[in-house]
Design a protein around this nucleic acid. Structure first.
Length: 788
DNA sequence: AAAAAAT
């Protein structure tokens, strides 16, 4: 059974037979080969040499020509010359003793047979694993008394000689003729006694044992040579999982009572006997006023994550970021002039939007929805915060709302996005709309449980929201079949058309029926996107609200020419402000490093990049969203689509790769009409690139020199940082959640294994986020490194 | 370079 089934698909996974078969033959041959080679540490020749040294070969070994001499007793020594000459005369052979006639007649009477001993499992003595039990005193060695064990190395051994006429000299024991002749006659041996009482008394007196020495110097030096002296490796129970240092690899925490916990806590016998008499119970009150007042404050609710293990939390990650929406309770009046009603959307959708105060479509929604409702292919270009999610989500859901139901494993609509965070954001934004129509949706992305995804697919999913990698994986496992996709939407298509993504994306698109509706949204239309458009869209209607130029006039752009030695300081100065700051860097390591450097300077920052596990990603982004983390240091994983309110500054510590990336990144600020500042640090050699990029992006920023303490920095609201490092426990508290009353049994789990946590992601958002339709178009980019 | 699947 391939490993991916054991760990990747947890025990409860309900696989269909097809899926099992698919998983078995699975697309993972490479891994198996890998583990076969990597798993058994020693190479075959090395192992054989080792075993040879220990004489472990036996007949059933594949190279069973060498048998051990162990177990046979000392080898009988012959002198060839002493043996009688062999006769080849048949008559000289001793009579065969077991001639048929001499044997007792065989009885075929069943009752004559010796009683067969019955083995029942229960008859067996319980096997003891207790060291102190049954084993007798431990054999004591004095290490020094042991003969030096010889190390076998093939090279060290002398050639075995089978000839007597060699130079070995006389045998060591030659002349010991006083020894009695050894008899090989079994009957000469003293009878073996089976009487326990005749054995010497066994001493269980610890004091009888030689004192153990604790003197380190008495011990022979420890060898670190693997092949040296160690004997076979200790066998661990096969249930012990290989230790992994990958956080995502950890086995799910078990809540099975019988599992691993050690003896159950003993409660004092003073616990009152439980009564099962109904009349003993206190009367239940049905008086509403007796109940505690229900609180509608989310913060009052018990923290769900406190009751949930980390794995379950990850499984639930698609429900993270539950925004507090300013929902209206009770019936909602849909105004006459409701813009969404005018677009022909179902009244339930319009009403649901109105409940959240969404009544006026954004331009891209106005432009796109009618065509999308008509089933046409759509090519949409939308800028930051333009509301693309609703632009494709509303018509897609409206069209799915036709009384049909999704068959198991056959979703009817698919939204593909390039990052997990974006997928979650889309899923969250569409969730209330999906539910109000009685449809089902599911998020399918990496880092989340396979089980919940597979189970949901088996139940039937109308709208699937996915990242390409996991979706392709599930397609290969036949956990999802794309032949019923009526509507397919590619969001952030320019990113999906990147070299690394393209093969997976096209592989998935190729699985879908030709005639379906396709919608493609992209900030720009370049070569890669053209390829997707040409290959997969039919007569698309193009709608663009603006082009890939900075059009947000509320955004200020600064390109600062700085000296490399000032980079760290200036970064901290710019990032340190009352509002939220997103800092972009080129690499994952750079993100970690810059975040650390900021914290060292007193600016609370945390890194977000694809190298973190999904739980950490959720916590960081959640903390940033809920305001407990003011500075987010991110790779371009956060450059697109991620919506967070009130980001006052985007700081590009490493310049973007191109003008599109510049616009994508800067699109994290100045959302929904807010003001925003984009600061890009440029080292001297990056100046010309930045000038060109600014021109292409359509911004008027002239690189100007800056030094720490520059007043232009202060003008953006920057505050000189305190220089006092952010305490580690604050970092932990915010990123790992509040510590609960100190229950963290020693020795359990890893650094975070069973720990409470959650914190950020489920907290309410600050500042009345409008999570609907908030994805933006924009640009992307980056290049050149933080350190020089 | 990053992202997207794991093992």
């Amino acid at each position: 059974m391939p490993k991916n089934q054991r760990s990747g698909a947890p025990k409860r996974a309900r696989w269909t037979p097809d899926q099992k078969a698919a998983a078995k033959k699975g697309p993972k041959k490479a891994h198996r080969g890998q583990s076969a080679a990597g798993g058994s540490a020693a190479s075959r020749p090395a192992r054989d040499a080792d075993r040879l040294a220990r004489r472990e070969f036996s007949r059933d070994d594949s190279r069973g020509d060498r048998r051990p001499t162990t177990d046979r007793g000392p080898r009988r020594e012959f002198s060839r010359d002493e043996r009688p000459a062999r006769s080849f005369n048949r008559d000289d052979r001793p009579q065969r003793r077991d001639s048929r006639d001499e044997r007792p007649a065989r009885s075929f009477n069943r009752d004559d047979r010796p009683q067969r001993r019955e083995f029942t499992r229960d008859d067996r003595p319980v096997r003891r694993f207790d060291r102190d039990d049954n084993r007798g005193p431990r054999r004591e060695f004095s290490r020094d008394e042991r003969p030096q064990r010889s190390t076998y190395s093939r090279e060290d051994r002398t050639v075995t000689r089978f000839s007597n006429e060699d130079s070995r000299g006389p045998r060591r024991d030659a002349g010991r003729d006083d020894r009695p002749q050894r008899s090989f006659n079994r009957d000469d041996r003293p009878a073996r006694t089976f009487n326990r009482d005749e054995r010497p008394a066994r001493s269980n007196d610890r004091d009888d044992r030689p004192a153990r020495t604790f003197n380190r110097d008495d011990r022979p030096a420890r060898s670190f040579d693997r092949d040296d002296n160690r004997g076979p490796r200790r066998e661990f129970g096969s249930d012990r999982p290989q230790r992994s240092f990958n956080r995502d690899d950890r086995p799910a925490r078990s809540f099975d009572r019988d599992d691993n916990r050690g003896p159950r806590r003993e409660f004092g016998s003073d616990r009152p006997q439980r009564s099962f008499d109904r009349n003993d119970r206190p009367q239940r009150s049905f008086d509403r006023n007796d109940r505690p007042q229900r609180s509608f404050d989310r913060n009052d609710r018990p923290r769900f994550e406190d009751q949930v293990d980390p794995e379950a939390e990850r499984m639930e990650a698609d429900t993270w970021v539950k925004a507090t929406r300013k929902s209206v309770d009770g019936p909602v009046d849909v105004a006459e002039d409701n813009g969404f009603a005018a677009l022909g959307l179902s009244s339930r959708l319009v009403e649901r939007l109105a409940r959240d105060g969404i009544t006026t479509p954004f331009p891209i929604q106005n432009a796109t929805i009618p065509d999308a409702m008509a089933g046409k292919d759509v090519l949409g270009r939308g800028q930051t915060g333009s509301g693309k999610t609703l632009a494709f989500g509303l018509p897609a859901l409206s069209r799915l709302d036709n009384g049909q139901k999704a068959s198991p494993r056959r979703p009817r609509a698919l939204v593909m996005v390039p990052t997990r965070e974006l997928a979650m954001q889309v899923s969250d934004a569409l969730e209330p709309l999906v539910h109000v129509l009685g449809l089902r949706h599911k998020l399918v992305a990496g880092g989340l449980s396979y089980t919940t995804q597979i189970n949901a697919l088996n139940r039937g999913v109308d709208l699937l929201i996915a990242t390409p990698g996991r979706l392709k994986d599930l397609v290969e496992r036949e956990a999802v079949i794309l032949d019923a996709i009526e509507i397919c939407i590619l969001d952030e298509a320019d990113h999906m058309a990147d070299m690394g993504f393209m093969p997976e994306v096209t592989a998935i698109l190729d699985q879908m029926p030709k005639g379906g509706q396709r919608m493609l949204f992209s900030a720009t239309l370049d070569k890669g996107v053209d390829k997707l458009v040409d290959g997969y869209l039919t007569d698309p209607v193009t709608h663009s609200t603006d082009d890939a130029k900075a059009s947000v006039t509320t955004m200020e752009h600064h390109v600062l020419l700085i000296d490399p030695m000032h980079k760290k300081t200036i970064t901290a100065e710019v990032a340190n402000r009352s509002g939220r700051t997103v800092v972009f860097v080129r690499t994952k390591l750079g993100a970690d490093r810059v975040a650390l450097q900021l914290r060292e300077q007193g600016v609370f920052a945390a890194a977000l990049h694809g190298g973190l596990n999904q739980g950490a990603r959720n916590r960081v982004l959640g903390a940033f969203r809920d305001g407990s983390l003011p500075v987010l240091v991110a790779t371009d994983v956060a450059a697109r689509g991620i919506h967070v309110d009130d980001v006052s500054v985007v700081l590009q510590v490493d310049p973007p790769a191109d003008h599109k990336d510049y616009l994508h990144r800067s699109g994290r600020t100045a959302r929904a009409g807010d003001k925003g500042t984009v600061v890009t640090l440029a080292l001297p050699h990056q100046r010309r690139t930045m000038e060109r990029m600014a021109r292409e992006a359509g911004i008027d920023a002239v690189p100007t020199k800056a030094v720490p303490g520059d007043e232009r920095l202060a003008a953006t609201g920057a505050v000189t940082p305190s220089g006092i490092p952010v305490p580690e426990d604050q970092v932990r508290r915010v990123l790992e959640g509040e510590k609960r009353g100190g229950r963290r049994p020693g020795g359990h789990g890893g650094p975070r294994g069973g720990g409470p946590r959650g914190g950020g992601p489920r907290g309410p958002r600050q500042g009345g986020n409008r999570s609907y339709g908030s994805d933006r178009g924009g640009q992307r980019g980056e290049r050149s490194s933080y350190s020089r």
